[in-house]
């Protein structure tokens, strides 16, 4: 539908009509141009750099897949990938479990529902740097939770994961779950509120217990919410950078290195721009593999409207 339908009586009106025809595209064009340059052009440029021998500055000597070969030969990158695997799976699993439980419980005609919901969700408004600062200190054995337990008389209490190479990655999970599980709760709660109560009543009349009611009927109906939660959390996990910097700085040693911190340090502090670019490309592929099918499905759904 366009302005062509307007009657063109005079040539001036004709000109105006043609302008009206182009105006929408004209208005959209700065955004489209910005997107093509700053998003897709930049992606292409970074992909190109990942095939060059760039060190401190971009250079344009083609080296083929050398950077990717080097990247996957680096133990720091392998560590980052393994850490991401542990972090992402636990982060998604625990956030979804807590979010689903809180949503189901809040849905039981709880009197202070509004207040509780606000408390569960506020961490999402904070910066990961603030979250990291708070948890860094809570988890510090010298002054945080461990120290408090000692002062309260539980002398043998140990909670020094943040200083422990084998356990530090789990402190990232704790802080990240703290930040986003309330958000997952909100997604599930919206899903629960969309379920037709008549179905539940009918099942109850048929004698279904609460447990089987949720397992057989409610949770399967929440499939779209599960999918959204997975997509959002997975892409947040791959992009995690701020939280690592604020909480552990990637340490102790390399115990909490993730692809995002690896990319930054190789590109900007170790002057290995080619390798850094290659790691960014791998990160993009990870995110795309989660997001693209989701966007594709959503857009096809939009067709029906």
């Amino acid at each position: 539908m366009s302005a062509e339908a307007m009657p063109a009586a005079t040539s001036r009106a004709d000109l105006r009509g043609r302008l009206q025809d182009w105006l929408p595209r004209l208005v959209l064009s700065p955004s489209v141009a910005a997107m093509l340059v700053f998003v897709y052009g930049f992606i292409a440029y970074t992909i190109y750099l990942s095939f060059t021998g760039s060190k401190m500055l971009p250079s344009y000597d083609w080296v083929g897949f050398d950077n990717y070969r080097r990247l996957f030969g680096l133990s720091a990158w392998t560590t980052a990938l393994v850490n991401l695997g542990i972090f992402a799976s636990l982060y998604i699993l625990i956030s979804v479990a807590i979010g689903l439980m809180l949503a189901i419980f809040l849905d039981q005609k709880i009197r202070a529902e509004g207040g509780l919901r606000a408390i569960y969700l506020y961490p999402m408004a904070l910066s990961f740097i603030v979250t990291g600062t708070a948890w860094k200190w809570l988890l510090d054995p010298g002054i945080g939770i461990e120290n408090t337990m000692h002062l309260w008389g539980w002398e043998s209490f140990r909670f020094d994961w943040i200083k422990d190479r084998d356990m530090a990655i789990y402190t990232l999970v704790i802080a990240a779950v703290w930040q986003s599980s309330g958000f997952v709760m909100a997604m599930f709660l919206a899903g629960l509120r969309g379920i037709d109560n008549e179905i539940l009543k009918a099942a109850q009349i048929d004698g279904a217990s609460n447990l089987s009611l949720y397992r057989r009927i409610v949770i399967p109906m929440l499939r779209p919410a599960f999918l959204s939660a997975f997509v959002i959390l997975a892409h947040l996990a791959i992009k995690s950078y701020d939280l690592v910097i604020a909480l552990t700085g990637g340490g102790p040693g390399r115990a909490t290195e993730l692809p995002a911190t690896f990319m930054y340090s190789y590109t900007f502090t170790r002057n290995q721009m080619g390798v850094g670019a290659a790691s960014a490309v791998i990160m993009l592929m990870g995110v795309a593999s989660v997001i693209v099918p989701y966007i594709y499905a959503e857009m096809r759904q939009g067709d029906d409207r």
Binding site: S31, M35, F42, Y45, T46, L49, A260, M273, A277, I295
Partner: peptide, 18 residues
């Protein structure tokens, strides 16, 4: 669709050219 995808990219991919 292109705009939507741009919301989710890991920004590491644009840091160097930017």
């Amino acid at each position: 669709g292109l705009l939507l995808f741009s919301c989710f990219i890991p920004f590491q991919i644009v840091l160097i050219p930017m």
